Simulated assay, not measured.
Amino acid sequence: MHNFSTKHSSVRDLHRMKRLETLSIIVNGGCTMETLSSSLSELTHLENLTINDDKVLYATKNDEKGFVLDCVHLKQLELEIHMPSLPDEKHFPSHLTTIHLYGCCLEEDPMPILEKLVHLYDVDLSHMSLCGRRMVCSGGGFPQLHKLHLFGLNKWEEWIVKEGSMPLLHILRVDNFHKLKEIPDGLRFITSLKELKICRAPWGFKKKLSREGEDYYKVQHIPLVQIEYDYR
C-alpha cells in the first residue's frame, strides 16, 4: 500500500491489514506518533516502511515523542519525520538491512544506535537528518554495512571512525557539507573500501587529500577516489 494518508483515513484501519508487507504513510494530521507506533506494531508481516510527515521541516521537537518501531520482520525503513533522537536499538527491528533518514533534525548522534543493528547493509542520512555537530562510529559497529551515504548535514563538524568499525564497507559517499573539518583517520583501517566519492566539498579538502597532502594516507588504499569541489 502506497501513500496511505492520515488526513483521510485512521491509522487504526491498518489493524485489519495483518499481512501487509509494504507500506508508505503520509502523516498530515489526525495522528500522533504514539498512535502510529501502536498501529504499526500490529503489522507483523511488514518488510518495507516509509513514513513521511509533510510538515517535517516545521515540526516542533516534541511532536514525535514516544515513537518506536516494533515491526519484527521489517527490512527497509525510510523516515522523513522530525525526531530529536532515535529510539534505542531495542525498538528497531533486528532484521533491518536498509535505513534512510531525511530531515529528522536529530540532535543526538544516531551512530551509537544504528551501529548495533547487525544486519544493516545500506545507511543513508540526508538533508539535515543530523543537526548535531559530532558523529562517532565505534569499533565493532556496523558489522555488515556495505554502503554509507551522508548528504546535506550542514551542522556536522567532526567525524570519528574507530578501528574495527564498518569492516565490510565498500562504498562511501559524503556530499554537500560545509563544516566538516577533515575525513576521519579511521578510514585507513577500512581495507574493504572500494569507492569514496566526496561531492561539493570545501576547498580545504583539495590540498589535504592530494598525493602530497596531510590526509592522503587516509585514502591511499581506496581504488577509486572521486572529489568534486564546491565552486561557490
Rank of each mutant, 00 (worst) to 15 (best):
L79M: 06
T98K: 07
E115L: 04
L106R: 06
D124C: 14
V72T: 15
H82W: 15
M83E: 06
E89D: 09
H91E: 06
M83P: 02
D109W: 06
P93S: 05
K75Q: 09
D122N: 10
Q76R: 10
S126M: 12
E107L: 10
C104M: 05
L86P: 10
D70W: 10
Q76W: 11
M83W: 03
E80Y: 07
H119F: 10
H127D: 15
L77F: 13
V72D: 12
L74M: 07
L77I: 07
H100Y: 15
T97F: 09
M83Y: 04
H95R: 13
H73T: 13
H100Q: 11
P84W: 11
D109L: 07
L114N: 04
G103C: 08
I113M: 01
H82C: 15
Y102W: 11
H119S: 07
D70L: 12
L120V: 03
E89L: 03
L106D: 00
L77V: 08
C104N: 02
H73A: 13
I99N: 06
P93K: 07
D88P: 11
E108P: 09
E80K: 08
H100I: 14
E107N: 08
L79T: 00
K116F: 04
V72Y: 02
E80H: 12
P93F: 04
L77N: 09
P93D: 05
H91L: 04
E78P: 03
D122F: 03
I99K: 08
F92C: 02
V123M: 02
L120W: 00
P93W: 04
H95D: 11
F92P: 05
E108L: 14
I99Y: 12
K90A: 10
E80F: 05
E80R: 13
L125T: 08
C104G: 07
S94R: 04
C105S: 12
H73D: 13
L79P: 07
I99R: 03
D124S: 15
T97P: 13
E78Q: 14
E80W: 10
V72M: 14
S126I: 13
L117Y: 00
L96N: 04
E107K: 11
L125P: 03
P112R: 01
D124W: 12
F92Q: 00
D70N: 12
V123W: 00
H91Q: 11
H95K: 12
T98P: 03
K90N: 10
V123E: 03
L106T: 11
D109C: 06
P84L: 11
P87Y: 05
Y121W: 09
S85Y: 04
P84C: 10
H91R: 15
K116G: 03
I99V: 14
C71S: 10
S94L: 09
L74Y: 09
Q76T: 14
T98G: 06
D88T: 13
L74E: 07
Q76D: 12
M83Q: 08
L101F: 09
H127K: 15
Y102P: 05
L101G: 07
P93H: 06
C105I: 08
Y102R: 12
L74G: 01
L79C: 00
P112M: 00
H95T: 09
S126W: 11
Y121F: 12
K116P: 08
P84G: 10
K75L: 13
L77D: 07
P93V: 02
H95L: 15
P112Q: 02
I99T: 08
H100V: 15
E89F: 07
D70P: 06
C71R: 14
S85A: 13
S85T: 05
I81E: 02
Q76I: 13
V118P: 00
V123L: 02
T97N: 12
L101M: 10
H95M: 11
